[in-house]
Nucleic acid binder design. Structure first.
Lengths: 350, 350
DNA sequence: GTGAAAGCGCTAACAC
DNA sequence: GTGTTAGCGCTTTCAC
């Protein structure tokens, strides 16, 4: 089934040198300068003649590094076990998360390729044997995206022997020391509150999911209550509303709501339409993430924009530094959000 | 830097057996039944005690398989060298191709995970040393997405020793025998022509890019001319128009145009608006791909829908069969398109 | 500048 | 059921 592979040894014997010389010429650039140019040329010719191809698996094995970065995407560590089910694919397909993941992935790819690393997505990186799979030598480091901060996950992270960078999570959530990149949810929510306040809104609620997707959702909620007063909004915890609680949301007690992420806003818009609530005239809605999904909604959704691609690139930068042992104290990088005004917000009509 | 790894040997000596027995118990499920249950239990306990973790790199090396599938995405083989540049990231980011790639990728992931394979994206899969990198043992097979059918690429494909499946390309383009999955462009264009004909359009043009992205664009154009007459449209090759040729497109010679892909339609819509051409009243526009991008356009874009996720899943199915040597004659699977009517088409106003 | 020896961790093939 | 032998292809170490 296999065409028998041409090995270093084959090239060596054809070139009349030892295998190690071939290795130096063909693979190890740092040492190749210590080979006579004539010899090197002979080796290259022999390799060419024989159609030599480096065996990456052998190199990975021998050097104990794969130049590969694994990506763990999902709503908590149970995700990959559900594949085939499949939560993973559902979310990839869904415009909301899939859209934001695409941008983040793009940043990760740019960062990884820049450093000469490949990206791997595996079905068995986690699951029942998470501790094992994460450290089994298939990748040099991991980017963790969008994780729950449960104690079980924290335990897994602590056991992992491979460098990890968290995206959208703080190491403190897991009670461990890991580098992380995160957008400034506090500042982002501040932009939303400021936007609505400047439009003249005074009665603003915060709409979320009963079971938050991850820690960021709570951060955003807290940020709302921490800053609302500073912008002249009189709110208390009763103004944190479940997205299913249409009676409250559409009670006309509010002239605007901020949602914990775009998906919640996308959920509200058709519900509002069904009740004859006009957006933005009767109710302004602000999302969070500002993915392309916002442009698909009618009205298009005003939303806080996360610098997702930047997050992805910096996550890989940190990871590569961590792999190289250049990270003494794991930093937590926070990037400011932007704000995209679209059609779903306007001054209050009443 | 490394915590010294626990090996099979360590587990073996602790359990009082030979390494191969440990291997059978822990890794090779097919053979593990040939181990006494008491022994197996002892081995598992020893592994647990020592915190043994399988070294995947070693297994990959030894077994000459990685259970990994590589994805080559891009407009021709020069793509990855441009990364960092970067065409790859541009297209990932762009709604048009990025959107369709996301769905395809989702299908590939579902298919791969289903078969227990991982997905890898590498910066060096192609480029100057394409022949080498494609066969260097880092993956068991490749999915090629969206390639140009140049002779140079054909040559590279012929030299590749790793199983390949083409997506959106026919093996015949490359004059080689490879399995492929493709959507039925002919049938898809037929749906578009039929839709417009039934609305009453008689003067329909085909708008494309001067330099087609890939072979499919030409297929779609050919399909248009092959089927237009059957639906009562009187067209000739002069009705194939460059997307830059606004004078012709908006000359009111046409009541409708079919575009070679959604991106072209997205390019026309603002141009029409700038000229006071109303869509769909003055000009109906049909796209091709029907990604979420269509929902972002105003008006939303009526478009032929490719079964991208299905394509991705079947591509992997074929690839896995090919890897296992179960594919005697490489098949070409063609999947029918659907059609999504949105706002950009209506009966002609005149 | 070059090479010999050794071994990374695992598993195929075969013997017992 | 279990163990022995051998070696995958490469690179590290150290000697020359």
């Amino acid at each position: 089934m296999f065409a028998l592979a041409v090995t270093l040894r084959d090239v060596a014997s054809r070139a009349g040198v030892s295998p190690i010389v071939v290795s130096r010429v063909l693979h190890n650039k740092a040492l190749s300068i210590r080979v006579a140019e004539a010899t090197a040329e002979r080796v290259r010719k022999a390799a060419q003649d024989l159609g030599y191809v480096k065996n990456v698996a052998a190199v990975n094995f021998r050097t104990r590094q794969t130049l590969t970065i694994g990506i763990l995407h999902g709503l908590g560590f149970d995700m990959p076990t559900a594949v085939g089910g499949s939560r993973y694919s559902e979310f990839m397909l869904e415009g909301i998360i899939g859209g934001s993941f695409r941008i983040l992935l793009n940043g990760i790819i740019i960062g990884a390729f820049h450093h000469g690393y490949s990206i791997i997505l595996c079905p068995k990186l986690l699951g029942q044997t998470a501790e094992e799979a994460m450290s089994d030598g298939r990748c040099d480091g991991l980017v963790l995206y969008n994780t729950d901060h449960t104690e079980a996950n924290a335990e897994i992270l602590r056991k992992c022997t491979v460098p990890i960078v968290l995206v959208h999570s703080r190491a403190s959530y897991f009670d461990c020391k890991l580098p992380s990149v995160i957008c400034d949810n506090h500042q982002g929510i501040g932009l939303a509150v400021e936007h609505l306040a400047k439009l003249g809104h005074r009665r603003v609620g915060f709409v979320k999911e009963a079971r938050p997707l991850n820690a960021e959702m709570s951060e955003r909620e807290d940020a709302f209550f921490a800053q609302a007063h500073a912008f002249g909004l009189n709110v208390d915890r009763s103004d944190s509303i479940d997205r299913q609680d249409f009676d409250t949301i559409f009670s006309r007690r509010y002239t605007a709501v901020i949602t914990s992420h775009d998906g919640v806003a996308g959920f509200l818009i058709p519900a509002a339409e069904a009740r004859g609530i006009r957006i933005p005239e009767d109710l302004s809605i602000v999302g969070f993430d500002s993915t392309s999904y916002c442009n698909e909604l009618r009205p298009t959704l005003t939303s806080v924009r996360q610098p997702l691609q930047v997050l992805g690139e910096h996550a890989v930068d940190l990871l590569v530094q961590s792999i190289r042992g250049e990270l003494t104290d794991p930093p937590q990088l926070t990037f400011p959000c932007g704000f995209d005004v679209r059609e779903s917000t306007s001054p209050p009509a009443h």
